[in-house]
Design a protein around this nucleic acid. Sequence first.
DNA 1: GTCTATAGGGCGATAGAC
DNA 2: GTCTATCGCCCTATAGAC
Lengths: 187, 187
Amino acid sequence: MGRWEPDARGRMLEAAIELFTEKGYDKTTAGDIAARAGVTERTFFRHFADKREVLFAGPVTLDDLVAKAVASADAEATPLRMVLDGVHQAAVELSALRTREQAVERARIVEATPALRERELLKMADMATAAQAALVERGVAETVAALAAHAAAAVFQAAFGRWVSETTDLSLAECVDEAAATLLELR
Amino acid sequence: MGRWEPDARGRMLEAAIELFTEKGYDKTTAGDIAARAGVTERTFFRHFADKREVLFAGPVTLDDLVAKAVASADAEATPLRMVLDGVHQAAVELSALRTREQAVERARIVEATPALRERELLKMADMATAAQAALVERGVAETVAALAAHAAAAVFQAAFGRWVSETTDLSLAECVDEAAATLLELR
DNA sequence: GTCTATAGGGCGATAGAC
DNA sequence: GTCTATCGCCCTATAGAC
Protein backbone atom coordinates (compact mmCIF):
# COMPACT_ATOMS: atom_id res chain seq x y z
CA MET A 1 0.00 0.00 0.00
CA GLY A 2 1.27 3.44 -0.91
CA ARG A 3 1.90 6.38 1.32
CA TRP A 4 -1.30 8.07 0.08
CA GLU A 5 -4.73 6.81 -0.77
CA PRO A 6 -4.91 6.16 -4.50
CA ASP A 7 -6.98 8.06 -7.11
CA ALA A 8 -6.72 11.56 -5.70
CA ARG A 9 -8.21 12.94 -8.94
CA GLY A 10 -11.23 10.72 -8.69
CA ARG A 11 -11.84 11.70 -5.08
CA MET A 12 -11.52 15.38 -5.91
CA LEU A 13 -13.99 15.03 -8.77
CA GLU A 14 -16.46 13.25 -6.54
CA ALA A 15 -16.02 15.77 -3.73
CA ALA A 16 -16.49 18.64 -6.18
CA ILE A 17 -19.75 17.28 -7.53
CA GLU A 18 -21.07 16.70 -4.03
CA LEU A 19 -20.15 20.16 -2.82
CA PHE A 20 -21.32 21.96 -5.95
CA THR A 21 -24.66 20.21 -5.57
CA GLU A 22 -24.91 20.96 -1.85
CA LYS A 23 -23.74 24.57 -1.78
CA GLY A 24 -23.39 25.66 -5.38
CA TYR A 25 -20.22 26.34 -7.34
CA ASP A 26 -19.60 29.87 -6.12
CA LYS A 27 -19.95 29.05 -2.44
CA THR A 28 -17.58 26.11 -2.74
CA THR A 29 -13.89 26.93 -2.46
CA ALA A 30 -11.08 24.91 -3.94
CA GLY A 31 -9.99 24.35 -0.34
CA ASP A 32 -13.37 22.82 0.52
CA ILE A 33 -13.02 20.33 -2.31
CA ALA A 34 -9.45 19.48 -1.39
CA ALA A 35 -10.36 18.98 2.27
CA ARG A 36 -13.20 16.61 1.48
CA ALA A 37 -10.93 14.67 -0.86
CA GLY A 38 -8.26 14.49 1.83
CA VAL A 39 -5.61 16.51 0.03
CA THR A 40 -4.27 20.03 0.30
CA GLU A 41 -5.48 22.98 -1.74
CA ARG A 42 -2.11 23.04 -3.45
CA THR A 43 -2.63 19.47 -4.64
CA PHE A 44 -5.96 20.47 -6.14
CA PHE A 45 -4.31 23.14 -8.25
CA ARG A 46 -1.54 20.78 -9.27
CA HIS A 47 -4.11 18.46 -10.78
CA PHE A 48 -6.43 21.08 -12.26
CA ALA A 49 -5.30 24.28 -13.96
CA ASP A 50 -8.21 26.11 -12.37
CA LYS A 51 -11.27 25.43 -10.28
CA ARG A 52 -13.51 24.86 -13.30
CA GLU A 53 -11.35 22.17 -14.81
CA VAL A 54 -12.27 19.67 -12.10
CA LEU A 55 -15.56 19.12 -13.98
CA PHE A 56 -13.96 18.96 -17.43
CA ALA A 57 -10.71 17.09 -17.10
CA GLY A 58 -11.13 13.49 -18.17
CA PRO A 59 -9.14 10.56 -19.47
CA VAL A 60 -9.92 11.57 -23.07
CA THR A 61 -10.85 14.85 -24.72
CA LEU A 62 -13.70 15.38 -27.14
CA ASP A 63 -11.11 16.83 -29.47
CA ASP A 64 -9.23 13.62 -29.88
CA LEU A 65 -12.34 11.50 -30.12
CA VAL A 66 -13.80 13.56 -32.95
CA ALA A 67 -10.54 14.14 -34.78
CA LYS A 68 -9.83 10.44 -34.75
CA ALA A 69 -13.33 9.57 -35.94
CA VAL A 70 -13.24 12.13 -38.75
CA ALA A 71 -9.88 10.85 -39.87
CA SER A 72 -11.29 7.35 -40.27
CA ALA A 73 -14.65 8.33 -41.78
CA ASP A 74 -15.88 6.98 -45.09
CA ALA A 75 -13.88 8.67 -47.85
CA GLU A 76 -16.89 8.78 -50.17
CA ALA A 77 -18.95 10.85 -47.73
CA THR A 78 -19.55 14.60 -47.92
CA PRO A 79 -17.67 16.78 -45.40
CA LEU A 80 -20.79 17.24 -43.31
CA ARG A 81 -21.45 13.50 -43.24
CA MET A 82 -17.86 12.85 -42.25
CA VAL A 83 -18.01 15.12 -39.26
CA LEU A 84 -21.50 14.01 -38.25
CA ASP A 85 -20.11 10.48 -38.33
CA GLY A 86 -17.30 11.75 -36.15
CA VAL A 87 -19.56 13.15 -33.45
CA HIS A 88 -21.66 10.00 -33.56
CA GLN A 89 -18.53 7.96 -32.90
CA ALA A 90 -17.48 10.34 -30.16
CA ALA A 91 -20.91 9.99 -28.57
CA VAL A 92 -20.54 6.23 -28.49
CA GLU A 93 -17.14 6.34 -26.86
CA LEU A 94 -18.18 9.08 -24.46
CA SER A 95 -21.17 7.08 -23.24
CA ALA A 96 -18.85 4.32 -22.14
CA LEU A 97 -17.07 6.67 -19.75
CA ARG A 98 -19.91 7.74 -17.49
CA THR A 99 -23.50 6.83 -16.77
CA ARG A 100 -26.37 9.02 -17.88
CA GLU A 101 -27.17 9.77 -14.24
CA GLN A 102 -23.70 11.16 -13.73
CA ALA A 103 -24.01 13.19 -16.90
CA VAL A 104 -27.38 14.57 -15.80
CA GLU A 105 -26.07 15.71 -12.44
CA ARG A 106 -22.99 17.25 -13.99
CA ALA A 107 -25.13 19.01 -16.61
CA ARG A 108 -27.35 20.46 -13.90
CA ILE A 109 -24.36 22.02 -12.17
CA VAL A 110 -22.85 23.35 -15.39
CA GLU A 111 -26.10 24.87 -16.55
CA ALA A 112 -26.60 26.70 -13.27
CA THR A 113 -23.16 28.33 -13.37
CA PRO A 114 -22.16 30.83 -16.06
CA ALA A 115 -18.46 30.30 -15.40
CA LEU A 116 -18.90 26.59 -16.10
CA ARG A 117 -21.05 27.17 -19.16
CA GLU A 118 -18.22 29.27 -20.56
CA ARG A 119 -15.76 26.45 -20.05
CA GLU A 120 -18.11 23.95 -21.65
CA LEU A 121 -18.50 26.18 -24.67
CA LEU A 122 -14.72 26.44 -24.95
CA LYS A 123 -14.43 22.66 -25.00
CA MET A 124 -17.10 22.48 -27.69
CA ALA A 125 -15.31 25.12 -29.74
CA ASP A 126 -12.07 23.23 -29.37
CA MET A 127 -13.84 20.10 -30.57
CA ALA A 128 -15.15 21.99 -33.59
CA THR A 129 -11.68 23.33 -34.33
CA ALA A 130 -10.23 19.83 -34.12
CA ALA A 131 -12.93 18.50 -36.43
CA GLN A 132 -12.30 21.35 -38.85
CA ALA A 133 -8.59 20.59 -38.90
CA ALA A 134 -9.30 16.91 -39.48
CA LEU A 135 -11.54 17.79 -42.44
CA VAL A 136 -8.95 20.12 -43.92
CA GLU A 137 -6.43 17.30 -43.51
CA ARG A 138 -8.70 15.26 -45.77
CA GLY A 139 -8.76 17.92 -48.44
CA VAL A 140 -11.90 19.86 -47.54
CA ALA A 141 -11.83 23.61 -48.20
CA GLU A 142 -11.26 25.78 -45.12
CA THR A 143 -14.61 27.60 -45.17
CA VAL A 144 -16.63 24.46 -45.83
CA ALA A 145 -14.73 22.64 -43.10
CA ALA A 146 -15.37 25.44 -40.61
CA LEU A 147 -19.11 25.49 -41.21
CA ALA A 148 -19.50 21.73 -41.30
CA ALA A 149 -17.52 21.37 -38.09
CA HIS A 150 -19.50 24.03 -36.23
CA ALA A 151 -22.79 22.67 -37.52
CA ALA A 152 -21.78 19.27 -36.20
CA ALA A 153 -20.88 20.82 -32.87
CA ALA A 154 -24.37 22.32 -32.78
CA VAL A 155 -25.78 18.86 -33.44
CA PHE A 156 -23.75 17.42 -30.60
CA GLN A 157 -24.88 20.13 -28.20
CA ALA A 158 -28.52 19.70 -29.16
CA ALA A 159 -28.21 15.95 -28.80
CA PHE A 160 -26.52 16.19 -25.43
CA GLY A 161 -29.16 18.59 -24.19
CA ARG A 162 -31.91 16.24 -25.27
CA TRP A 163 -30.18 13.23 -23.76
CA VAL A 164 -29.76 14.79 -20.32
CA SER A 165 -33.26 16.31 -20.41
CA GLU A 166 -34.59 12.79 -19.73
CA THR A 167 -37.50 13.30 -22.11
CA THR A 168 -36.31 10.37 -24.16
CA ASP A 169 -35.02 6.84 -23.76
CA LEU A 170 -32.68 7.20 -26.70
CA SER A 171 -28.96 6.73 -26.18
CA LEU A 172 -26.64 9.68 -26.66
CA ALA A 173 -25.55 8.35 -30.06
CA GLU A 174 -29.18 7.99 -31.11
CA CYS A 175 -29.87 11.55 -30.00
CA VAL A 176 -26.97 12.62 -32.21
CA ASP A 177 -28.53 10.84 -35.18
CA GLU A 178 -31.88 12.43 -34.46
CA ALA A 179 -30.39 15.91 -34.29
CA ALA A 180 -28.30 15.27 -37.40
CA ALA A 181 -31.44 14.33 -39.30
CA THR A 182 -33.12 17.54 -38.15
CA LEU A 183 -30.12 19.57 -39.28
CA LEU A 184 -30.08 17.96 -42.71
CA GLU A 185 -33.72 18.85 -43.23
CA LEU A 186 -33.08 22.54 -42.71
CA ARG A 187 -33.39 24.61 -45.87
CA MET B 1 -19.17 70.84 -15.05
CA GLY B 2 -19.67 67.84 -12.84
CA ARG B 3 -17.50 66.58 -10.08
CA TRP B 4 -15.97 63.97 -12.37
CA GLU B 5 -14.96 63.83 -15.98
CA PRO B 6 -17.77 62.38 -18.07
CA ASP B 7 -17.83 59.02 -19.86
CA ALA B 8 -15.91 56.93 -17.37
CA ARG B 9 -16.96 53.77 -19.23
CA GLY B 10 -15.62 54.99 -22.54
CA ARG B 11 -12.30 55.96 -20.96
CA MET B 12 -12.00 52.59 -19.28
CA LEU B 13 -12.71 50.77 -22.55
CA GLU B 14 -10.08 52.81 -24.37
CA ALA B 15 -7.54 52.33 -21.59
CA ALA B 16 -8.22 48.60 -21.55
CA ILE B 17 -7.62 48.18 -25.28
CA GLU B 18 -4.42 50.20 -25.09
CA LEU B 19 -3.08 48.25 -22.13
CA PHE B 20 -4.12 44.84 -23.45
CA THR B 21 -2.32 45.66 -26.69
CA GLU B 22 0.77 46.98 -24.92
CA LYS B 23 1.20 44.37 -22.20
CA GLY B 24 -1.33 41.64 -22.90
CA TYR B 25 -4.51 40.81 -21.01
CA ASP B 26 -2.92 38.78 -18.24
CA LYS B 27 -0.23 41.30 -17.38
CA THR B 28 -2.79 44.09 -17.20
CA THR B 29 -4.57 44.46 -13.86
CA ALA B 30 -7.98 45.99 -13.39
CA GLY B 31 -6.18 48.61 -11.31
CA ASP B 32 -3.94 49.48 -14.27
CA ILE B 33 -6.96 50.10 -16.45
CA ALA B 34 -8.71 52.12 -13.79
CA ALA B 35 -5.62 54.23 -13.17
CA ARG B 36 -5.18 55.09 -16.84
CA ALA B 37 -8.86 55.98 -17.06
CA GLY B 38 -8.57 58.18 -13.98
CA VAL B 39 -10.86 56.18 -11.69
CA THR B 40 -10.34 53.71 -8.88
CA GLU B 41 -10.27 49.96 -9.24
CA ARG B 42 -13.54 49.73 -7.35
CA THR B 43 -15.22 51.96 -9.93
CA PHE B 44 -14.03 49.65 -12.68
CA PHE B 45 -15.79 46.73 -11.04
CA ARG B 46 -18.94 48.74 -10.53
CA HIS B 47 -19.16 49.26 -14.29
CA PHE B 48 -18.05 45.82 -15.36
CA ALA B 49 -19.05 42.61 -13.62
CA ASP B 50 -15.57 41.27 -14.21
CA LYS B 51 -12.37 42.19 -15.98
CA ARG B 52 -13.39 40.48 -19.23
CA GLU B 53 -16.60 42.39 -19.60
CA VAL B 54 -14.81 45.62 -20.44
CA LEU B 55 -14.31 44.23 -23.96
CA PHE B 56 -17.86 42.93 -24.32
CA ALA B 57 -20.15 45.46 -22.70
CA GLY B 58 -21.70 47.69 -25.31
CA PRO B 59 -24.71 49.90 -25.91
CA VAL B 60 -26.57 46.99 -27.50
CA THR B 61 -26.26 43.24 -27.19
CA LEU B 62 -26.08 40.77 -30.04
CA ASP B 63 -29.00 39.05 -28.35
CA ASP B 64 -31.37 41.90 -28.79
CA LEU B 65 -30.26 42.65 -32.32
CA VAL B 66 -30.85 39.11 -33.51
CA ALA B 67 -34.05 38.55 -31.54
CA LYS B 68 -35.50 41.75 -32.95
CA ALA B 69 -34.49 40.86 -36.49
CA VAL B 70 -35.90 37.35 -36.25
CA ALA B 71 -39.15 38.67 -34.88
CA SER B 72 -39.57 40.89 -37.94
CA ALA B 73 -38.35 38.41 -40.55
CA ASP B 74 -40.42 37.39 -43.55
CA ALA B 75 -43.20 35.13 -42.29
CA GLU B 76 -43.08 32.98 -45.44
CA ALA B 77 -39.44 32.05 -44.89
CA THR B 78 -38.15 28.79 -43.45
CA PRO B 79 -36.83 28.88 -39.88
CA LEU B 80 -33.24 28.76 -41.09
CA ARG B 81 -33.83 31.62 -43.52
CA MET B 82 -35.48 33.65 -40.78
CA VAL B 83 -32.54 33.35 -38.46
CA LEU B 84 -29.97 33.84 -41.22
CA ASP B 85 -31.87 36.99 -42.06
CA GLY B 86 -31.62 37.90 -38.42
CA VAL B 87 -27.86 37.59 -38.23
CA HIS B 88 -27.53 39.50 -41.50
CA GLN B 89 -29.53 42.33 -39.97
CA ALA B 90 -27.51 42.15 -36.78
CA ALA B 91 -24.32 42.35 -38.86
CA VAL B 92 -25.56 45.52 -40.53
CA GLU B 93 -26.40 47.20 -37.24
CA LEU B 94 -23.22 46.01 -35.60
CA SER B 95 -21.08 47.47 -38.36
CA ALA B 96 -22.50 50.87 -37.60
CA LEU B 97 -21.18 50.73 -34.04
CA ARG B 98 -17.46 50.32 -34.67
CA THR B 99 -15.01 50.49 -37.51
CA ARG B 100 -13.44 47.38 -38.96
CA GLU B 101 -10.07 48.52 -37.65
CA GLN B 102 -11.43 48.62 -34.12
CA ALA B 103 -12.97 45.20 -34.60
CA VAL B 104 -9.69 43.79 -35.92
CA GLU B 105 -7.71 45.08 -32.94
CA ARG B 106 -10.30 43.77 -30.50
CA ALA B 107 -10.38 40.40 -32.26
CA ARG B 108 -6.60 40.14 -32.03
CA ILE B 109 -6.73 40.60 -28.28
CA VAL B 110 -9.62 38.18 -27.80
CA GLU B 111 -8.04 35.48 -29.92
CA ALA B 112 -4.80 35.66 -27.97
CA THR B 113 -6.52 35.18 -24.61
CA PRO B 114 -8.38 31.98 -23.68
CA ALA B 115 -10.34 33.72 -20.94
CA LEU B 116 -11.64 36.21 -23.50
CA ARG B 117 -12.40 33.52 -26.07
CA GLU B 118 -14.56 31.84 -23.45
CA ARG B 119 -16.50 35.02 -22.90
CA GLU B 120 -16.96 35.54 -26.61
CA LEU B 121 -18.31 32.03 -26.98
CA LEU B 122 -20.74 32.71 -24.15
CA LYS B 123 -22.03 35.80 -25.93
CA MET B 124 -22.45 33.80 -29.13
CA ALA B 125 -24.30 31.07 -27.26
CA ASP B 126 -26.56 33.67 -25.69
CA MET B 127 -27.23 35.08 -29.14
CA ALA B 128 -28.15 31.62 -30.38
CA THR B 129 -30.44 31.08 -27.41
CA ALA B 130 -32.14 34.40 -28.06
CA ALA B 131 -32.58 33.53 -31.73
CA GLN B 132 -33.96 30.14 -30.78
CA ALA B 133 -36.49 31.72 -28.44
CA ALA B 134 -37.51 34.18 -31.13
CA LEU B 135 -38.08 31.31 -33.56
CA VAL B 136 -40.10 29.35 -31.03
CA GLU B 137 -42.10 32.51 -30.46
CA ARG B 138 -42.97 32.36 -34.14
CA GLY B 139 -44.18 28.79 -33.88
CA VAL B 140 -41.06 26.86 -34.85
CA ALA B 141 -40.53 23.52 -33.11
CA GLU B 142 -38.01 23.55 -30.28
CA THR B 143 -35.49 21.15 -31.85
CA VAL B 144 -35.62 22.78 -35.26
CA ALA B 145 -35.25 26.19 -33.66
CA ALA B 146 -32.24 25.07 -31.64
CA LEU B 147 -30.40 23.70 -34.64
CA ALA B 148 -31.27 26.58 -36.94
CA ALA B 149 -30.20 29.10 -34.32
CA HIS B 150 -26.89 27.41 -33.62
CA ALA B 151 -26.20 26.92 -37.30
CA ALA B 152 -26.81 30.62 -37.81
CA ALA B 153 -24.45 31.39 -34.94
CA ALA B 154 -21.82 29.28 -36.69
CA VAL B 155 -22.42 31.33 -39.82
CA PHE B 156 -21.97 34.55 -37.90
CA GLN B 157 -18.75 33.35 -36.32
CA ALA B 158 -17.34 32.20 -39.64
CA ALA B 159 -18.33 35.49 -41.23
CA PHE B 160 -16.82 37.55 -38.46
CA GLY B 161 -13.60 35.56 -38.65
CA ARG B 162 -13.37 36.14 -42.37
CA TRP B 163 -14.18 39.83 -42.04
CA VAL B 164 -11.47 40.53 -39.49
CA SER B 165 -8.95 38.33 -41.30
CA GLU B 166 -8.65 41.15 -43.86
CA THR B 167 -8.45 38.69 -46.74
CA THR B 168 -11.52 40.26 -48.25
CA ASP B 169 -13.05 43.66 -49.01
CA LEU B 170 -16.53 42.41 -48.28
CA SER B 171 -18.58 44.07 -45.57
CA LEU B 172 -19.50 42.07 -42.48
CA ALA B 173 -23.04 41.62 -43.79
CA GLU B 174 -21.69 40.36 -47.11
CA CYS B 175 -19.45 37.91 -45.28
CA VAL B 176 -22.55 36.66 -43.49
CA ASP B 177 -24.28 36.08 -46.81
CA GLU B 178 -21.26 34.29 -48.17
CA ALA B 179 -21.05 31.99 -45.16
CA ALA B 180 -24.80 31.41 -45.24
CA ALA B 181 -24.55 30.29 -48.85
CA THR B 182 -21.78 27.87 -47.92
CA LEU B 183 -23.88 26.45 -45.10
CA LEU B 184 -26.88 25.94 -47.35
CA GLU B 185 -24.79 23.94 -49.79
CA LEU B 186 -23.79 21.43 -47.14
CA ARG B 187 -25.37 18.03 -47.61
C1' DG C 1 4.59 23.82 1.02
C1' DT C 2 4.77 28.93 1.74
C1' DC C 3 4.11 33.56 0.10
C1' DT C 4 1.98 36.96 -2.54
C1' DA C 5 -0.58 39.55 -6.04
C1' DT C 6 -4.97 39.95 -8.17
C1' DA C 7 -10.00 39.32 -8.70
C1' DG C 8 -13.91 40.75 -7.08
C1' DG C 9 -17.61 41.50 -3.29
C1' DG C 10 -19.54 44.54 0.90
C1' DC C 11 -20.43 48.81 2.78
C1' DG C 12 -20.34 53.37 4.63
C1' DA C 13 -18.85 58.18 3.41
C1' DT C 14 -18.85 61.94 0.10
C1' DA C 15 -20.35 65.25 -3.17
C1' DG C 16 -22.69 66.64 -6.75
C1' DA C 17 -27.52 66.71 -9.64
C1' DC C 18 -32.45 67.07 -9.11
C1' DG D 1 -34.65 66.23 1.06
C1' DT D 2 -33.54 61.97 -2.68
C1' DC D 3 -30.77 59.80 -6.18
C1' DT D 4 -26.55 58.45 -8.23
C1' DA D 5 -21.65 58.06 -9.16
C1' DT D 6 -17.48 57.70 -7.01
C1' DC D 7 -14.14 56.77 -3.30
C1' DG D 8 -11.74 54.20 0.13
C1' DC D 9 -11.00 50.67 2.98
C1' DC D 10 -11.87 45.86 4.38
C1' DC D 11 -12.35 41.25 3.20
C1' DT D 12 -11.77 36.32 1.02
C1' DA D 13 -10.53 33.07 -2.69
C1' DT D 14 -7.99 32.22 -6.69
C1' DA D 15 -3.94 31.06 -8.80
C1' DG D 16 0.79 31.91 -9.86
C1' DA D 17 5.61 32.52 -8.08
C1' DC D 18 9.09 31.04 -5.29
